[in-house]
Amino acid sequence: MKKIVIGLSGASGSIYGIRLLEKIKEAEIHLIISESAKKVIELETDYDLNYIKNLADYVYDDSNIAATVSSGSFIFDSYIIIPCSSSTMAKIAVGISDTLISRVALVAMKERRRIIIVPRETPLSTIMIKNMLALSESGVIIAPAMPGFYSRPKTVDDMVNSMVGRVMDLAGIENEISKRWSHP
């Protein structure tokens, strides 16, 4: 069974992370939720924090940088930070590991594990673009929350599913939540 670590940081777009948690079926899920993410979830959604935590097999406090998932000896298949705030992205890009979310990313980078970050900011500043470039050059997959429209989404839910399905593809997680491209 795959092991997936998911970090929810304080960027807008918490629904992407929640939907990802709801759609992963065949994996052991390790979840880290930042304090800022808890506030954003409350502001942006009607989801209860306990419901979200119950979607994971293991939940860690973002201040616990000694948690099991922070060790290079903890083997996992993918680490997904969704959504990824510009602050979290900047910390990782320059090697700051003062939270569990950033610590797991830096350990995963040194261990050459799959990391996917989903920034949800617009417009992008030059600093943010440079941070994305630095992370990409270090092997991190950058998947900005930019849903495609070739599937002709009818609802916001369709657009969320499209993006989450793409992230699941990048993580090697089977899914059928978004329409696949097919040319007539």
Rank of each mutant, 00 (worst) to 15 (best):
I4P: 11
V5K: 07
I6Y: 12
G7I: 08
G10E: 08
G10M: 06
A11P: 05
A11M: 08
S12C: 12
S14N: 11
I15Q: 14
I15L: 15
Y16I: 03
Y16N: 10
G17L: 06
R19V: 10
L21Q: 07
E22M: 06
E22C: 02
K23G: 01
K25C: 07
K25H: 14
L31S: 11
I32A: 13
I33D: 14
S34Q: 14
E35V: 03
S36E: 15
V40P: 05
V40C: 09
V40D: 09
I41P: 09
E42M: 02
L43N: 10
T45S: 12
Y47N: 06
N50I: 09
Y51R: 14
K53D: 09
K53V: 08
N54C: 04
L55M: 13
A56V: 08
D57L: 05
D57V: 03
D57T: 07
Y58M: 05
V59H: 11
Y60S: 12
D61F: 06
I65D: 11
I65S: 11
A66G: 14
T68M: 15
S70D: 12
F76R: 11
S78T: 15
S78Y: 10
Y79M: 05
Y79N: 06
I80L: 12
I81G: 08
I82E: 06
I82L: 13
P83I: 05
S86E: 08
M89F: 10
A90R: 14
K91T: 11
I92V: 15
I96G: 08
D98Q: 13
T99A: 13
I101V: 15
V104M: 08
A105S: 12
A105K: 02
V107L: 02
A108V: 03
A108K: 11
M109W: 05
M109H: 05
R112F: 15
I115Y: 01
I116L: 10
V118G: 04
V118K: 04
E121M: 03
E121A: 04
E121D: 09
P123I: 03
L124K: 03
T126S: 12
I127N: 08
M128G: 04
I129R: 09
L133V: 10
S136D: 01
S136Y: 04
S138I: 00
S138R: 09
G139Y: 05
G139Q: 04
V140Q: 02
I141E: 08
I141R: 02
I141W: 00
P144T: 03
F149R: 03
Y150S: 00
S151F: 01
R152H: 06
T155Q: 00
V156C: 00
V156S: 00
D157I: 01
D158C: 00
D158F: 00
V160A: 06
S162G: 07
M163C: 10
G165A: 11
R166G: 04
R166E: 02
R166H: 13
R166Q: 07
V167W: 14
M168V: 10
D169M: 07
D169S: 12
L170G: 10
A171I: 05
E176Q: 07
I177R: 04
S178N: 09
K179T: 01
R180D: 03
W181C: 02
W181N: 03
S182I: 03
H183A: 09
H183T: 08
P184K: 12
